[in-house]
Design a protein around this nucleic acid. Sequence first.
DNA 1: TTTGAAATTGCAATCGATTGCGTAATTTTT
DNA 2: AAAAATTACGCAATCGATTGCAATTTCAAA
Lengths: 345, 345
Amino acid sequence: MKKGKRTTIYDIAAKLGITASSVSRALNNSNQVNEKTKELIMKTADELNYKRNILASNLRKGHSKTIGVVVPRINQNFFANVIAGIEEATYQKGYNLIICQSGESHDKEIQCVNTLINQDVDCIVISVSADGSDYQHLQNVIDHGIQLIQFDRVAEELETLKVINDNEQASYEAVSHLIESGYKRIALLEGPQNLSIFKQRKVGYLRALKAYNIGVIDELIVENAWTKELGAEGTRKLLSLPQPPDAIFASTSDFSALGVLEVANAMRIKVPAELGVCGYANESFSEITSPSITTIDQFSIYMGQTVANLYFQEKGNTDTATKPKIISIKPELIIRASTAKNGKS
Amino acid sequence: MKKGKRTTIYDIAAKLGITASSVSRALNNSNQVNEKTKELIMKTADELNYKRNILASNLRKGHSKTIGVVVPRINQNFFANVIAGIEEATYQKGYNLIICQSGESHDKEIQCVNTLINQDVDCIVISVSADGSDYQHLQNVIDHGIQLIQFDRVAEELETLKVINDNEQASYEAVSHLIESGYKRIALLEGPQNLSIFKQRKVGYLRALKAYNIGVIDELIVENAWTKELGAEGTRKLLSLPQPPDAIFASTSDFSALGVLEVANAMRIKVPAELGVCGYANESFSEITSPSITTIDQFSIYMGQTVANLYFQEKGNTDTATKPKIISIKPELIIRASTAKNGKS
DNA sequence: TTTGAAATTGCAATCGATTGCGTAATTTTT
DNA sequence: AAAAATTACGCAATCGATTGCAATTTCAAA
């Protein structure tokens, strides 16, 4: 077999003087075929370098053993980790992954989802992009009878399986930690509020302030500061205030926290003595900055595995109640140097 | 359409009292069908929320419009970037990506490749794992008439399309830079020599020493130091030598260089004054360590795009000569603080 | 009005594997 | 050894879309 057509079950059947049915059954290890014949078939299949045509198989079977994944960016630590986790768990079960990136564009996200529907994937796993709050395309997935699992950035109003982080609680703990470390005027760098994860983090921030009887100061809350650059910009404004904050919670990401660090450094403001900094996501770099950044670990790989397992688990379920299951993973506060106001950590 | 079957071209045909042939043609925008009918078909297709079944289509057409990618780890910056680049370029052309990770295991790599062959992918893009030097599985890909493109970590003996970095030259320039910066005893942390990329980097190192008339000192060359931990371990040994090096080229990765930095720090050896450090790969963290790390940028996203474009370009080619094309991308030395011996950068 | 070419549409086979149903072959049971 | 029960295998339809070829319709030129 060089350039020629690939071998099919018919080729094997012809060579052995039997039917394709038997070959198919043998290849699927059906017990409806004689052991001897089965062995013979296996052997010739091997000789002919036969490889099953999955397209045909899936078409007939009505499923694709393929899971589609849509994320804003593949090359972002958190998402890459989640995908790695999903891949690991699904590969063992013989499933394949089709990966798409929306690039934070709602339009491309819609395109991706439609492509995946076309591909006849058995399940679509998605973390929605930041712009857009119309989720017709996701409803469409459900209407097509395709399992939909949202993770991290989810459209809350949609009743689907979800795997999320307890953002509010994590945020609450982070801010509590800042307060208990002795910081008094704590600023918040927040992300786009149409994403629930950012909304929840803000709620956690507010809840912590309340719990410690600290008033909310509007000018310490900076909107839309979710990249390193925007974080830096927000920090410059904050630190130029008549009464600047003595801590900044970059609730959007460690990148944003990195921006904070750079600005503080440029302004010769000492972290953590004069300014406490807390990030989010435990990016690999956060432990090697100086000072290292206190942050929140989201167990991203585990999250991916959880998504995969959730799918397999629900797959077995006979449509009993179709209760939208939500799995919440508790993130962990990682305390490092950037919040050690009094030298203690 | 709720739980029911998905709509097919037959449903559309039935509703319109025509044949599936016409529907198919209309959907493929063939000029063999009347404009009016075409419009009508399009409209009803839309109304019925029709989505083409790609499996059936591909089965018939004999290709899958799918590209398989095998990398050691998805969640490693370099690979995530390459994949992002491939995705970007292929998505536009309506191709899908199936991603697998070998986890640096030769066995799993073989499995992955076979799965992809089964999946009937049109092309397999691979960066081989570190262990194993048997490439029968790759030959198998070729024998199945599937386009094979290797990138970065390639099996040189296999005549396939390749997209690589000019590792030797980059390495040569890095070491030259160290020498010109005033460092005299330059150590090398090298990676598994069965991977050509690491071999080439070593050659570049040796060539630079020779060019500047510096003798090779065997004890300054540390084998298999390609993780942060192994890099640190190697560094400890190097720095405990009677005559320790005054610079270390961590040719394997920035992670390894990070290990160097940490050990130097722990031993209170000043970088870059007493020890120059150069990494490889321009990981995002390399610019925010202190000091920031001189490293080599591999243009990973661009590399991915190049792989994709190479595929599309070759696809058109009628089997003229089947010359194995090799595209070499020139990496760029990024000079930062960790090699500024005399304060100059 | 007739004729011929061009434009549309239908028919039926095909891509490769799977599977329900029926029949033939084999084994087991009396 | 005959009847009953398995077991093994073949037949043919099916999954949904595509496409070469044939048939029909349309339209303009003669």
